[in-house]
Computed example of a mutant assay.
Amino acid sequence: LPPGVELSAFRIVQEALSNVMRHAPGAQARVELGYQRRGLTVRIVNTAPDRPAPPSPGAGHGLLGMRERAAMLGGELTTGPTPDGGYEVTAVLPTHHPDPSAAAPETAEDPV
């Protein structure tokens, strides 16, 4: 993967897991990675917390930072609650690998 995609994926996972610890005490979390030629999908899902979260100090810019990281690469970030009371963060980060089948075929010059 390009270094920017690797770093952004790592930071998004790191921030999402920090948010689980901070906002969903006792929840289970799952991280899924999906690679395709055109991009990397990173999905972090947690279950509902088993107790209320204590007040969290700080400015709360985690989701904004993840969104900016994805946008910087031309990707997307979606976030939101799950039907079971958990939360999901999904980032799609383009890898910009050219498709070899889309390359123009080489043509030999015709002798005159």
Rank of each mutant, 00 (worst) to 15 (best):
R30N: 05
T79S: 08
E109G: 06
H61F: 15
A9D: 01
M21Y: 10
A104Q: 11
P52K: 03
P111F: 01
R30A: 11
T90K: 14
G85Q: 10
L64N: 02
A9K: 07
G75T: 02
L63C: 05
E88S: 12
E88P: 06
R51M: 10
P57G: 02
H61L: 15
E6W: 05
G65I: 01
L40V: 12
A9G: 07
P111H: 09
V5R: 04
P25S: 03
L73C: 11
P100M: 12
L1K: 11
R51K: 09
L17M: 09
R51E: 10
R69H: 03
L7Q: 14
S8V: 10
A29C: 06
T82P: 09
R69T: 03
I44W: 01
L73D: 00
D50S: 14
I12T: 03
P81G: 14
V5C: 04
G75S: 00
V89G: 01
P111V: 11
R43D: 05
P3Y: 08
G26Q: 03
R51W: 02
R38S: 11
V20R: 11
R38K: 10
D110R: 13
A29N: 09
P25E: 00
V13Y: 05
R11T: 09
D99R: 08
V5M: 04
D50G: 02
Q36M: 02
V45K: 07
R43K: 13
A16G: 07
A16C: 02
G4S: 08
E88Y: 07
R51A: 04
E88H: 06
T82Y: 13
G86W: 08
T78E: 13
T79W: 02
M21N: 00
D84T: 15
A102G: 08
P94Q: 05
L33F: 15
R22S: 06
P54W: 04
E109Y: 06
E109F: 08
A48K: 14
T79Q: 08
M72C: 12
Q36F: 00
A9R: 00
E15L: 14
L40M: 14
G34V: 04
I44R: 01
H96G: 06
R11E: 15
R67C: 02
T90P: 04
A59T: 15
M66F: 05
P57I: 03
Q14A: 12
Q28C: 09
P111I: 01
P83C: 10
A71R: 11
R11V: 15
E76C: 00
A48N: 13
G75M: 08
E88T: 11
D110A: 14
P98L: 10
V31Y: 09
P49Q: 06
L64Y: 13
T95R: 07
A102H: 08
H97I: 12
A71T: 13
A108I: 12
A16Q: 04
R37A: 14
E6M: 01
V112Q: 14
T90C: 04
V5W: 10
A53M: 02
V42Y: 09
P54E: 12
P57E: 03
